[in-house]
Nucleic acid binder design. Structure first.
Lengths: 343, 343
DNA sequence: ATGAAAGCGCTAACAC
DNA sequence: GTGTTAGCGCTTTCAT
């Protein structure tokens, strides 16, 4: 026997004694195949172990492939989104394929183009940092849903979490505990468009707004670094060097909070005894006993589910007006925040 | 203007005043295109913004796509492997697309078949749990490299880390610190084939062997649960209930160690004061200050690099004999292990 | 409801 | 070195 040539639609048609058109129709549950036809064809498919070639399908119709672009793989929050996506696609003919990029614009362009080249039926872009121009271009080539980036476009749908409100939840919580000198570590952003659209910017805004609302405008204290462990470490060092150091630090992301904790330890301090610390994202490790970080849960799973829903919708009706879905976050209180001792 | 039909190879050929063959050859850097031809064609490609359709290419030649299957997304160790993979592919025409499955056999079958259907040029399977029969089947359909699973096959290459030796490193370390009652929490496995091939089984074997080698055969104490946080928690509870409880616990994976720490805290104990704890994998969170877990570094990055190398090799020369690459792990000593106090 | 036939965009085999 | 042509395996008109 030969190195097993793949079974094609022709083999199935011949085996079932029907036309390839018929097989194609059955495969796609398309209109125009009698029940008997269905039975015959399905039997042949089963017997021969036929699986359609996605490449060949893609040349005429769909590829039944959804692409998901992630900024990185190490933030478990993205895994939550993906769970929502794949779960909702379970049982359908669609397959999700992901690509993680390197958090840089060139990488995002490469990946999105690769997805378009591969005739994917739709793409979900998670927290993209590309220019709006590029996002538009992608969206015009393939049905697109952008997750975790605010702002709206006539070409793609968006699913976001209310980062502004989320930051407010943290500030409210800390104020309730008696804190006033609450500092924030943000991810530096200068690009004006992204300044409005990126979650990190919204969190900083939300922090500012909530501080004002509590009459703590004078205590607003923001350090700009990056959403990395290193960024948290450096940010906290700056804050600890203040003449009047803060009693609470709200890190813009859980991973940032890890760096903050490192800096505290190094300075001989600890949370929450000396300083309360809160993060954002409710990543897996936030729940670990020795860490037990107070943080904000973004409902990643729900974001994923909503993203696919919008996407499949758009695959079906290309031209429909775009939608923006905004979900609401919840505060997860753990052991790194506590009532202030000496106000 | 129309909803922009994609630019095809015909458009480019016409624009450059050459044949489609010529364009195709230039695209693939294939033999038989003069320098002037190259220039002309490249100019036309540039001007028209042409990008070849992967679907169409796949129907005849390659798709320039490498598929990577991951058992899950939340273990950062897999991200290390992927970094190695993508980094090594940087600058080539290949694109990596991943799919995470649900740690179950049916999911793995679905994903591998999806990759085959999509005419991927090669696949890298990370820590697959499927039957050998299925792996063989996949490998016969598409060039395959299996990562993180021992055993060898005439059809696929393997890249593994020496889990047996890694477990030995941990035991040696703990013995050096004066520990004798060193317990191990393993991932339960009954399937006889996987019992030999899966890393978890090798770690348990390595533990057993090392204990014997140190004359501590009588102290061998293995609890079978699962490689999850919950598994670690339950396993530790069992161990703490022993009449003579262990002075050190070697968890088969970092995530298991997290569960162990939870159980210790709950019992009013802590590491390393009361019990030393070691993990395996050196995942990102093992390095976090409040955790600071002693663990084993598997050099995931190197595994990734080696996997692609083997894969591209096999894509070029399909029939070549298979290779097995085994890397050596290193111990990462942190603060959850310490010299024994009262032996 | 069914099937014949014309492509989809590319590559490979073959002429020139 | 270059161009012509025949498919790759499907889906989609369009007859019947």
């Amino acid at each position: 026997m030969h190195p097993s040539r793949r079974v094609t639609i022709i083999d199935v048609a011949r085996h079932a004694g029907v036309s390839t058109t018929a097989v194609s129709k059955v495969m796609r549950n398309a209109y125009g195949a009698s029940p008997e036809m269905q039975v015959k064809v399905r039997a042949a498919i089963e017997e021969l172990g036929y699986r359609p070639s996605a490449a060949a399908r893609g040349l005429r119709g769909q590829t039944y492939t959804i692409g998901v672009m992630l900024p990185e793989m190490r933030n478990p929050f993205f895994a939550d989104i993906l769970d929502g996506v794949t779960e909702h696609l379970d049982g359908t003919d669609y397959q999700v394929l992901m690509a993680a990029c390197c958090n840089d614009e060139a990488g995002e362009v490469r990946i999105t183009e690769a997805m378009i080249d591969r005739s994917m039926d739709g793409v979900i872009l998670i927290a993209p940092i590309s220019s709006r121009r590029h996002l538009q271009k992608v969206a015009r080539a393939v049905p697109t849903v952008v997750v975790g980036r605010h702002g709206h476009s006539p070409d793609y749908d968006t699913v976001t979490d209310d980062d502004f409100a989320g930051a407010g939840l943290v500030v409210d919580h800390l104020v309730t505990l008696g804190h006033q000198r609450i500092a924030h570590i943000e991810h530096a952003e200068r690009n004006p468009v992204r300044l409005k659209e990126m979650p990190n910017a919204q969190r900083a805004d939300g922090y500012r707004h909530a501080m004002q609302a509590h009459g703590l405008g004078d205590h607003i204290d923001i350090v700009s670094t990056t959403y990395t462990q290193q960024g948290g470490y450096l940010g906290a060092q700056q804050l600890l060097a203040r003449p009047q150091r803060p009693t609470a630090i709200f890190a813009g992301a859980d991973i940032v909070a890890m760096g903050v904790l490192d800096a505290l330890t190094e300075a001989g301090l600890s949370a929450p005894q000396d300083i309360s610390v809160a993060g954002y994202d409710d990543t897996m490790f936030a729940a670990f006993g020795p860490i037990s970080l107070t943080t904000v849960d973004q409902a990643g799973h729900q974001m994923g589910v909503n993203a696919v829903r919008l996407l499949l919708d758009r695959v079906a009706i290309r031209g429909r007006p775009t939608a923006q879905i905004k979900l609401f976050p919840t505060l997860v209180t753990r052991r790194t925040t506590a009532p202030i001792v000496s106000p």
